[in-house]
């Protein structure tokens, strides 16, 4: 599994080279965009890390997690991951800040860290997407969209927990 990243890179570069893409120039162009994206998301991450940090240090987060523990225990979601489960549908950059906070605490290669990363990369910011997409064309009645999207989101969280526990048995 650890060679997956070099393999992806070499496959994409070889394919691009065969198709006549100036791979170096294209890479630089994209890399500049990556720099700009990081610059743009930094304020969101900082804002969220401050809020989560304050909430955790004050004991407020433990209290909220205790309120949610019946749900997390029933599904077997590690308690540390719950803030991410709640934040992810609402705000992508907010969720990234929450994920950073979780990884800092449990470590990126722990089972809990891997579950959190899996949830982050397999579900989308549905409230935001629904608002923007329907808003852009003036739809008022969204019918069953939110219900079905939330069902998908919940299925994703449960599946992430089960699949990660199966693959990375400890």
């Amino acid at each position: 599994m650890s060679y997956i990243i070099p393999v992806i890179i070499v496959v994409i570069l070889t394919y691009g080279h065969m198709k006549g893409v100036k791979v170096y120039e294209a890479f630089i162009e994209g890399a500049k965009e990556g720099l700009i994206i990081t610059y743009r998301i930094f304020p969101y991450i900082a804002a969220m890390l401050i809020a989560v940090g304050m909430l955790r240090r004050s004991g407020g987060l433990d209290f909220l997690l205790m309120l949610l523990s019946p749900i997390s225990n029933a599904v077997g979601i590690p308690q540390e991951v719950m803030p991410l489960v709640i934040m992810k549908p609402l705000s992508g950059s907010g969720a990234l800040g929450v994920l950073a906070d979780i990884l800092k605490r449990v470590g990126p290669d722990s089972l809990t860290g891997i579950i959190a990363c899996t949830i982050m990369s397999s579900t989308e910011t549905i409230f935001y997407t629904i608002t923007v997409y329907f808003g852009s064309i003036g739809i008022k009645n969204i019918r069953h969209t939110l219900a079905a999207a939330l069902i998908a989101e919940i299925a994703g969280v449960v599946a992430a927990v089960i699949i990660c526990k199966m693959i990375f048995k400890v």
Partner: peptide
Amino acid sequence: IGGMVLWCGILKVAEKS
């Protein structure tokens, strides 16, 4: 920054190809 520069660069190659 490091990771984003790497991946956005690679993805740009994918996009152009």
